[in-house]
Design a protein around this nucleic acid. Structure first.
Lengths: 161, 161
DNA sequence: TATTGTTATACTCTATAACTATA
DNA sequence: TATAGTTATAGAGTATAACAATA
């Protein structure tokens, strides 16, 4: 029997571990981390990441139906209902029936919604800076560009309309 | 009324959309995509990504308890039980009581488990190549290095032992 | 008392399928 | 017949807390 029973494994560092070499695993973990930090940052504005994403889509100017928002974000339309319900209840978003097609809503941010979204952006950007802190200034745009090329062929999952 | 009713919005490209500029959003989407492709690839070996990760940890040589595997992977120990149950039922992993501490199991891959893991690696590597296809050869190691630096400070979530 | 593996349970999230009103 | 929004429901996944065996 060795002098140390149950030799207390020192906590392994990421690079010690086989999975830490796998690009795919690093992507998955980085994505989970980015989501967690975004959720934490947005909690200061009382928003979930999904609400922030939906508001950002609505804010783009092009009139979008709930279904289109969901298709672009990869969220089923039935889940969009609850998000818009929340946002409308907080007077951040207005539903208005489309004049051309009365089945659809045209969604738009209220002034209050625009203000909150702007505030939320500040929180998200702060979280991103923390997340990207280990990178040099020139690495960040190169990384964003690489990510954009990786994601673009698969996005959106379902084409709207 | 315009000549085109309900003007069919052309599907927006990623770069058209405000979220497509957000590094954090790109990370989250890239992570989701990496997970989806890994799950699809591993289905050919009858494994879920989690099973693959657990098997990879067990295969590292250092004797690990179920709890340690869970801590390193960020999975609660109660969920590890079901994973090991599955793998043991398929004779891919063996549980053996630790001689030094009879509360713990020492986990090890069976020869069959090692063979399947090797096969699974081939599937995962193929999926990764597809995922990373939009990048140049020199971008891939630079990206992996950047990801590793981003994830390392947050990993593992809970230190084992 | 604390820890490992286990089980039970409750909660969140999501996917599927209907239904309505409009087209 | 098809589509937008809505609702209900079942399933998957997860987190929390407890328990027995062992330390």
């Amino acid at each position: 029997m060795s002098s140390r029973k149950n030799a207390p494994s020192p906590a392994p560092s990421l690079t010690d571990v086989a999975l830490g070499q796998r690009t795919g695993y690093l992507f998955i973990k980085a994505g989970e981390l980015a989501l967690r930090l975004a959720e934490d940052a947005l909690a200061a504005s009382g928003l979930r990441a999904r609400h922030f994403n939906v508001m950002t889509m609505i804010n783009m100017g092009r009139p979008l139906s709930q279904q289109e928002v969901g298709d672009i974000l990869g969220i089923d339309k039935n889940l969009i209902v609850a998000v818009i319900d929340d946002l409308e209840g907080r007077e951040l978003v207005r539903r208005e029936r489309s004049l051309e097609d009365r089945r659809r809503y045209v969604l738009e941010l209220t002034p209050k919604g625009k203000r909150l979204l702007k505030e939320a952006y500040a929180h998200v950007e702060r979280a991103e800076r923390e997340f990207l802190a280990p990178l040099t200034a020139s690495e960040v745009p190169a990384l964003r560009d690489a990510l954009s090329r990786i994601v673009a062929p698969w996005w959106p999952v379902k084409k709207p309309r």
